[in-house]
């Protein structure tokens, strides 16, 4: 079934699919960042796929993953899991990912769409035009990772207060923070 799904998706998207994979029945396709709105619109309007519901949208920071993959090579020890990672060749792979979870209400099938976001170009086109449901999740990704969404109507911080100086879910931000305090001045 997942093979059908993959075939359908690649039929629909054609060369836009950069990579695809399947794990425990969850199908993931990777698409170029700049075309994401177009891809999601196509997936939504394709009559066979009909991915008409945006479940969620969030970011992932892969910094530690790459560091971990790079280390065993130098030390030449501990293959195991890290060896399965594709070895980064040439320039380092983009640091961030934004993942869109789609659902088709008619067929109850799900799809993960992934875009990669390099550190020097932290922006992904907004999909709020397709689904209003993306409003807060995009604000949250901006808040937590610092990825901007051009086209978003109101891109502010969502969870942390406005003056918060960092993006907490990045892997280089410590769990216990850097001692930020919120100061409110009244009158």
């Amino acid at each position: 079934m997942t093979m059908d799904l993959l075939k359908g998706v690649s039929n629909c998207l054609g060369p836009l699919v950069v990579a695809s994979g399947e794990f425990r029945g969850d199908v993931t396709v990777e698409v170029p960042k700049a075309r994401i709105a177009e891809v999601l619109a196509r997936l939504r309007d394709d009559p066979n796929l009909a991915y008409d519901f945006l479940v969620d949208l969030f970011g992932v920071d892969n910094l530690d993953l790459y560091e971990k993959a790079a280390k065993p090579k130098k030390k030449t020890e501990g293959e195991g899991d890290a060896a399965e990672e594709p070895k980064p060749a040439g320039p380092p792979p983009p640091r961030f990912e934004v993942i869109y979870l789609l659902l088709s209400l008619s067929t109850n099938r799900r799809l993960h769409v992934k875009v990669r976001v390099p550190e020097d170009d932290l922006s992904v086109p907004s999909v709020t035009g397709l689904w209003k449901a993306a409003t807060w999740p995009e604000r949250e990704v901006y808040d937590m990772f610092g990825i901007r969404f051009p086209g978003h109507p109101d891109l502010r911080r969502l969870l942390m207060w406005d003056e918060f100086p960092a993006h907490p879910l990045r892997k280089d931000y410590p769990l216990e923070g850097r001692g930020e305090e919120r100061i409110l001045r009244y009158e």
């Binding site: 942390m160 207060w161 930020e180 305090e181 919120r182 100061i183 409110l184 009244y186």
Partner: peptide, 9 residues
């Protein structure tokens, strides 16, 4: 921490 000033107030 976001709530702290409000609690104080």
């Amino acid at each position: 921490k976001k709530m702290t000033p409000i609690l104080r107030r």
